[in-house]
Computed example of a mutant assay.
Amino acid sequence: MAAADTIRDHALSLPGAWPDEPWEGDLVAKVGPAAKGRIFAFLGARSVGVKAGATREEADEWLARYPHDAAVMAYIGRSGWNTLTIGGAIPLDELLEAVEDSYETVVAKLPRKHRPVP
């Protein structure tokens, strides 16, 4: 199984996670009810976009560790979102952990009534 498939399957296996394609050709993983679901991962073939930190400064730790394989996401990067390259220097287990951390951060921001029960 390709790393991108592993990441996608892992993201969608998290409690309450579901796939969506809000922009043609762009698969994302969301959590929460359909009308109020929140994206926690942008699932690409060559990269995964995640909420990498509560602040831009926290998310910048990825950039320092993996300068060639981590980048600030366009448009939402100022809010702590990064794009992490799949198949580069970042080990698969760290990519999977980044997806889990992003999920947990997004779930924590959901109203209690919309949070999935693990």
Rank of each mutant, 00 (worst) to 15 (best):
E21S: 03
M1E: 10
G80C: 06
H10G: 03
R112I: 07
Y103S: 03
P15R: 09
P33Y: 03
K51Q: 12
V106P: 06
Y103R: 03
V99F: 05
G77W: 07
M1L: 12
D5S: 13
D9I: 05
A59W: 06
A35H: 11
K30L: 10
G25C: 09
A98W: 04
E97W: 01
W18I: 00
V48F: 08
L27Y: 03
A89N: 11
I90A: 08
R65V: 04
T85P: 00
I86W: 05
R38E: 13
D101S: 13
A70I: 06
D93Y: 06
G25H: 11
D93W: 02
W62G: 07
E58P: 04
L63D: 09
G44W: 01
K113W: 01
D93F: 07
P118A: 15
R112N: 01
D20G: 14
L84I: 08
G88V: 12
I7P: 07
E104C: 04
R115W: 02
A64G: 02
K113M: 02
E57L: 12
G77R: 04
L95C: 07
M1S: 13
A52I: 03
M1Y: 02
L27D: 03
W81N: 11
M73H: 03
I90Y: 08
E24V: 13
P67L: 07
A4M: 00
G49K: 05
A11M: 02
L92W: 03
W18F: 13
L84A: 09
P116W: 06
A3L: 10
T6V: 15
S47A: 14
R46L: 00
Y66M: 05
S13D: 13
R65L: 15
D26S: 12
K30D: 00
A89I: 00
S102L: 09
T83K: 09
R115K: 13
G32C: 09
H68A: 14
P111S: 10
E94M: 09
E61S: 13
V99L: 07
N82K: 05
R115S: 04
D69M: 05
V72D: 04
M1A: 13
V72Y: 02
K30C: 12
P67N: 08
I76Q: 02
L14D: 10
L84M: 09
L84D: 08
D93E: 15
G44A: 02
A108E: 12
P91D: 06
G77C: 06
G80E: 11
D9E: 15
L96C: 10
V48M: 08
R115E: 03
K113L: 03
E100V: 12
A35F: 00
G53L: 10
V99W: 04
D60Y: 02
T83Q: 12
P15H: 09
S102V: 07
L63G: 07
E100K: 13
D9Y: 05
H10A: 14
F40T: 02
A35K: 15
D93R: 10
D5E: 15
W81P: 05
K30S: 00
P22C: 07
H114S: 12
D5A: 14
V106G: 06
A41P: 07
L92F: 05
E58V: 06
A17R: 06
V117D: 14
G44E: 02
A17E: 08
L110D: 08
K51Y: 11
P118K: 13
N82L: 13
D60F: 03
A45D: 14
D20Y: 00
K113Y: 04
M1R: 11
V31T: 08
G16C: 09
D5T: 12
A2D: 14
P111K: 10
